[in-house]
């Protein structure tokens, strides 16, 4: 297989890994807690792509049974990720509630300022 074919066939995976690492970078490098949670949800979304990409079949259709079609894409990853999306928004809401509570107690959501305040007291 030529290099170009490999690159085109795996373009989805490369972008998925890029999104995953961008999310990880936001979580690690950004000190702002809302930004960290946005990064975390980017990481989560990249996992959706990682699951659903291998399920696609070229020439297949959405997995809804109809006499007009015979090739369907794999429905199992779709089911798993449907659950993951809903759980993802639940964890995001819980994390944001914690951020609001931290902001109430410390008056800031910047990580280094919170550490400074902890050291003072």
């Amino acid at each position: 297989m030529s290099v170009l074919e490999t690159v085109l066939g795996h373009y989805d995976y490369v972008i998925t890994m890029f999104l995953m690492m961008a999310g990880l970078y936001i979580v690690v490098a950004s000190g702002n807690m809302v930004k960290k949670l946005i990064g975390l949800s980017i990481f989560q979304t990249s996992v959706y792509l990682l699951y659903i990409e291998p399920g696609k079949i070229t020439g297949g259709t959405a997995p809804i049974v109809d006499p007009a079609f015979s090739v369907y894409s794999n429905p199992l990853p779709h089911v798993l990720i449907l659950t993951a999306i809903v759980v993802g928004v639940a964890t995001l809401a819980l994390g944001l509630a914690l951020v609001a509570r931290i902001n109430e107690a410390y008056g800031t959501i910047e990580e280094d300022e919170i550490f400074d305040r902890d050291r003072e007291s």
């Binding site: 795996h10 995976y13 490369v14 399920g55 079949i57 070229t58 020439g59 297949g60």
Partner: peptide, 19 residues
């Protein structure tokens, strides 16, 4: 991770093991 995905079947393969 990208190195790890190189062994995955390319986009749209119909005889992928998961099917």
């Amino acid at each position: 991770l990208v190195w790890g995905t190189l062994v995955m079947p390319p986009y749209g393969t119909a005889d992928n093991i998961i099917h």
